[in-house]
Amino acid sequence: MLKGRSLIEPLDFSVEELDALFGLANEIAEAPEQYADACAGKLLATLFYEPSTRTRFSFEAAMLRLGGKVIGFSGEANSSAAKGESIADTIRTVACYADVAVIRHPKEGSALVAAKRTDMPVINGGDGGHQHPTQTLTDLLTIRREKGRLNGLRIGLCGDLKFGRTVHSLIKALSRYEDMEFCLISPEELVAPEYVVRYIRQGRDCGYTEARHMKEVMGRLDILYMTRVQRERFFNEEDYLRLKDTYILDAKKMKDAPQDMIVMHPLPRVNEIAPEVDEDPRAKYFEQAKNGMYVRMALIMSLLGVGV
């Protein structure tokens, strides 16, 4: 039962609760019109202290498609944070008006701080370079739909594994499933933090290898999860410029990949996937984006306890 709960990090929901959520998302994807009034009279608050296109639009589209309404701000300058208000005070105030809130904030742990100060369900829409659990719901749903399972998979995670919150959340979530192998492909400067590697070590029959070059692992992957090197996470512009084009997936590299491997990316991409790869049937990142809306519709409905 997810009614009244918050989603702050990927393990907040049990595997069984996730299965139910993905089941609902699949039903919504099959017949979205049947859910057009599911959240009529309900209000979603979107508190985006940090710029976002996909996550914010996806949440807003999800709520509007469920017949609910949306209030919110985008950019810290447009919020009371610019006047020095704390996250705790902002969320308490918002809880007076809205039924559910999604928060994106550049500081790590901000969504947890918000969730602790209110009984209203709070959804972490990304907290700095830490976690992004609704992207993980999107990723898990996509893997389930494309590969038919969430265990016994070899997944390559490539790019910025240090600050890539989508990668951190996905590894944490997948470590709960059996017989997973993670190939961590990154430059030395952007390796996964220690706490992320610990998720794998503590997982069920999970293992990992580290690689500096894509070709080392490309031929034996079920999934290749590409990420962008994020300019906004660097304190030093020179470091960003040096590392931003370390990995570029193109048609030539795709020739080394198995025919049933899928390519995923949380988007937005910059240079890390050449546009020519979009035509490859193994490229699934735009399906992933669509799945994101359906799974967020299922999430909002579940947290509000409507129609489930």
Partner: peptide, 21 residues
């Protein structure tokens, strides 16, 4: 010590740590 942690923005928050290993 993480400059990206929310505690660096809101110093009134309690500093809570858990034993992990």
């Amino acid at each position: 010590k993480n400059p990206r942690c929310v505690t660096s923005l809101e110093p009134a928050l309690p500093q809570v740590f858990h034993l992990v290993d």
